[in-house]
Design a protein around this nucleic acid. Structure first.
Length: 374
DNA sequence: AACGCGGGGGT
DNA sequence: ACCCCAGCGTT
């Protein structure tokens, strides 16, 4: 396969480089497996600089396995608000509850048990076992695949599971006796700081001397990765419903269903647009009113257009038009407040801290506050 | 193996 | 306007 000399050059020089250049990150100040675990889950698909403030707040609010296991899920979702991929938070708490109940709060130090936990896949199990317990397990993420595909000039599509298997075997072979924790962190650190996706900083790279991609002038072309499909657009009309009378100064929000996209998070009432294009504001508002009446039994009196905005997922783009509105005649029952299903609430700016919203709705509400202060 | 799942930063 | 992500679960 690859020569021992080439592999040892990589491991040895990478470790030396890491001792000098490693960043002082909050989760590197402890070997607490619970803290390492939280950081690794937050870091899935998310950059270090984004994670740091969330990590600080999270471990302060949930300092132990027991604290997170016994917390209400809504508090956990609120602490995760803005990080995205909210199933990570729900799975993390579910898994921490299992650790609390089945393992007396000790994160299991072996592959079988830790991999059985919700939200802990091959990457996260390897990361926790190596970083917290110094076990010689590979932790292969996108960063590691990029570094290895370049140094060893591997031209397989990194989106293929078979390529990941190859990388895991290779990454494990590269771990020198007793160095798993530092080595895996060093590998990711190199990918983040030096062997970057575009315009890698080869001149400062500790393993440039034997990098096959560099030698072949291929460092910019690797790794090979099949392009993802573009996200599908969805038009959505949002009703920013302002309360009157006893609800003056509040807005109507609702909780999303238990399962599926953005499960159990809160949002402004909105409807998916049945057509592929918007009409005039007047027509849009009529259609929005009808849709809310039919789907939710909410009757509104349309107000003014408020703003346009987008919410981008990896697979969908919500293209949203926001209209102000007030509650009008209700469909059924005709009067009273009891018609509001349990998952609707009136909230004002002062209660927003009690509910977790996807960022797009936070932006809309902040825009409203900004305009009303001015 | 393919798809669903957020959000922000870099160039 | 693209590109990139410190992945995992479901089907």
């Amino acid at each position: 396969m690859y020569s021992e000399e080439k592999k040892q050059h990589f491991s040895k020089n990478l470790l030396e480089w890491y001792q000098i250049h490693k960043r002082d990150l909050p989760w590197r100040r402890s070997r607490n497996p619970y803290y390492i675990w939280i950081s690794e889950v937050m870091l899935q698909q998310t950059r270090v600089d984004t994670v740091i403030p969330y990590f600080h707040r999270f471990v302060e609010q949930f300092p132990t396995v027991e604290a997170l296991a016994t917390a209400p899920e809504e508090h956990v979702l609120k602490a995760w608000e803005g990080l995205g991929y909210y199933s990570r938070a729900r799975n993390l708490q579910s898994a921490v509850r299992e650790v609390h109940e089945r393992y007396e709060g000790v994160v299991p130090p072996n592959k079988e048990e830790i991999s059985a936990l919700k939200g802990v896949g091959p990457y996260t199990s390897g990361a926790i076992l190596s970083i917290a317990y110094n076990k010689p397990e590979p932790a292969v993420d996108g960063n590691v695949m990029r570094v290895l595909s370049r140094y060893f000039l591997i031209e397989e599509d990194i989106m293929k599971p078979s390529t990941r298997t190859i990388m895991e075997k290779l990454a494990k072979e590269l771990i020198l006796e007793g160095t798993a924790s530092d080595f895996n962190q060093a590998l990711m650190e190199l990918g983040a700081m030096v062997c970057t996706p575009r315009s890698p900083h080869c001149l400062t790279c500790p393993v440039m001397a034997q990098c096959s991609a560099r030698e072949a002038g291929m460092e910019e072309a690797l790794p090979i990765k099949k392009k993802a499909k573009p996200p599908r657009p969805e038009l959505r009309a949002v009703a920013f419903i302002e309360g009157t009378g006893e609800h003056a100064g509040k807005w109507l929000i609702r909780q999303r269903p238990q399962e599926g996209l953005l499960a159990r998070m809160w949002e402004l009432p909105h409807v998916e647009w049945s057509s592929n294009e918007w009409h005039s504001d007047g027509e849009n508002q009529d259609l929005l009113r009808e849709a809310l009446a039919n789907q939710e039994q909410i009757g509104i009196q349309p107000g003014d257009w408020f703003m346009d905005t987008e919410h981008i997922f990896s697979h969908i783009v919500w293209k949203m038009k926001v209209y102000r509105a007030k509650l009008g005649d209700l469909q059924r029952p005709p009067t009273g407040d009891e018609w509001i299903p349990f998952h609707y609430r009136w909230v004002g700016p002062e209660n927003l801290q009690d509910y977790a919203f996807p960022n797009v709705f936070v932006r809309i509400m902040k825009e409203w506050q900004g305009r009303n202060e001015a």
